[in-house]
Amino acid sequence: MAESAARSTRIPQPSSPAGWILVGLGAAGFAYLLYAPVLLLESFLRTLGGVFMFATLALAWNIIGGFAGYASFGNVVFFGLGGYTVATLMAKAGWTFWPALVVAGAVGVLFAVLMGLPILRLRGHYFAIATLSVAEGMREIVVNMPSLTGGGAGITIPAVGLEATTSYPGNTGFYYFFLILLLVALAVTWRVSRSRFGYSLRAIHQDEDSAAALGINTTRAKVAAFALSGLLTALTGAIYAFQQVTIYPNRLFSIEFTVLMVVMAVIGGTGTIFGPVVGAVGLQFLSEYLRQNYLELHTVLFGAIIILAVIFLPNGIVESARELRSTKRIRFLDNVKANRL
């Protein structure tokens, strides 16, 4: 009983064999991905770019949610802020993309610190609700500042013709942008998981008082994790905004993005390095399949999948695969046995 309870939130070891197998596969896959634009249809490149984007978002959420255990339900605020920083600077101030991208990252970090200092004192549901409220509130603020943000009607980045400050990179360009960002996010996660910082986040996740008693500055560690998460998410939002050309607050601050980040991380495996990537790949392709085959039903089915995943696969695919290898079976009902009333 106690053992299965522990397993449900267990954080796998970074140096596990499964991790290394994935590293090997990743290297082979990476070589392919580099040449993919030559081989694949443009439309499929766009889909792949989307998968990379969500994988990055899930990895970013994983740092604060999976490692530190602070379930942010408002990470989309960084995504939206990053996107709007780039759009505003390019459309209103005539900036080119690259410096705007740097500023977007800085905005993500700064906002995470300012918001994190008061809000990271809250725990559990209170933290979740507070972050969610910040994101929703920020959307309303963006809607109501039309002179700067274009308001609810959206803002358009000049992407073609004489007005364009940076020429539009096209599907291939954005494919590479998202691929590079994903690799950065993976490297960051890998680094964190092995570092003292990563250990301090795990300690905070499991017992914050005990962590503080051991000399871990829990406030600083939590804020740093939030800032790192905010940085990666804001950069992703910035690239996404440029790709979309015209962005709207209801899309850029959509709660659905937040939920997707969480669902992907959870389905893949929170607190692991590759879990969020596996979750993002699986869910994005599944979602695409549902959209193409059951256009009307697809969101309903998606809701059902979330419910089933939470009940039967809460340790995530990565952990379950590891279990399958060592015990030759996946115990789908273990979660229910451990956590039911």
Binding site: A6, T9, R10, I11, R196, Y199, S200, R202, A203, H205, Q206, D207, D209, S210, A211, L214, G215, I216
Partner: peptide
């Protein structure tokens, strides 16, 4: 208040680390 998802060794290492 042990860190339940870390090994005993890692639990103790955290004390030394910080």
């Amino acid at each position: 208040k042990p860190f339940r998802d870390l090994t005993v060794r890692e639990n103790v290492a955290l004390g030394s680390m910080f």
